[in-house]
Design a binder for these strands. Structure first.
Lengths: 164, 164
DNA sequence: CTGCCTGCAAACGATTTGCACCAGC
DNA sequence: GCTGGTGCAAATCGTTTGCAGGCAG
């Protein structure tokens, strides 16, 4: 929205085009729009949500194209797969270092950019021969909405049903 | 295997029976065995792997029962869903505080019990009204196996295909 | 031209659901 | 006996694949 965000988006798109050139991949409108759709969202949309978003801009796209485009963007390292506990694939245009707030009530995941946390000593790197490149912290707790529900009804732990 | 592990298992099972009593749920053999199957594994098995394990002990079980049993155990808070990036559900009998090593090459997730990390200051708890109950750190990197592959071929980033 | 990308329809695999029956309490 | 668990088969849902064009380089 503001210029900062906008610049970020520009950069990502430039990065995408750059990679296409490097790898001699045709840069199609579809994939550009798919990337834009991911970048336009703050949350971690599912492939289907993105399909809807893309379809608003390119009425004829097929679901397959969106799925394949997303996969391609992941391969290029421009977007990330976001791992929620539901079974559907989710994507995240923010490939920078950031952390997550995971709600134990509704399973929603929000990004957390507070980086006072960063100076954690990346430890035991070579433990078990594992080479650590980065890390992110999952904070588990309850989002405002679920806190309210929780205080009202201590009981049932609204099932882990999928959101739709 | 050793007495410590064994005790842990006992406790979990006791906890399960306790919860069944509290909530007036019948405690069936199937669910007990499902729980045991989860506890007997160190990794994060898929529902289908657990189905196989359970079937070895109760030849007649249906896949449905295992799925439903696992769901029930998750609801009871005895086992956790483990979030990998592949599309299949995975489960984890270790509900204690622990961290994860996530391989960017093969997406495998391993538990990390090194708790020198624990004294991290749980910060900004009330940020956005989010109530933080716990946290876990995802270390992203490359497991020994993928490091080897990576050093040989810098190129293709073996696709994110499912393991089977 | 050549190769990757697209769209469609069909296939697929994991998970869920409806229903009749059976088992704990 | 009532309630919830089980097993089976069918349905569902997200995702992938095969194939025939189409388009970017």
């Amino acid at each position: 929205m503001d210029s900062k965000t906008s610049t970020f988006k520009q950069q990502k798109i430039a990065q995408f085009e750059e990679l296409c050139r490097q790898q001699r991949l045709p840069k199609t409108i579809q994939r550009r729009v798919i990337l834009e759709a991911v970048l336009d969202r703050e949350d971690h949309p599912t492939a289907d949500q993105l399909f809807e978003d893309v379809r608003n801009r390119i009425p004829g796209v097929s679901r397959t194209t969106v799925y394949r485009g997303l996969e391609a963007l992941v391969q290029l390292g421009i977007v990330r797969r976001a791992n929620h506990s539901d079974a559907v694939a989710r994507f995240d245009g923010n490939t920078d270092h950031h952390h997550h707030l995971v709600c134990l009530g509704c399973d929603r995941v929000t990004d957390l950019d507070d980086l006072k946390l960063d100076p954690i000593k990346l430890p035991d790197g070579r433990r078990r021969g594992f080479e650590i490149a980065d890390f992110s912290i999952h904070f588990e707790g309850y989002c405002p909405e679920c806190r309210r529900k929780k205080s009202k009804a201590l009981s049932p732990r609204a099932g882990l049903r999928r959101e739709k």
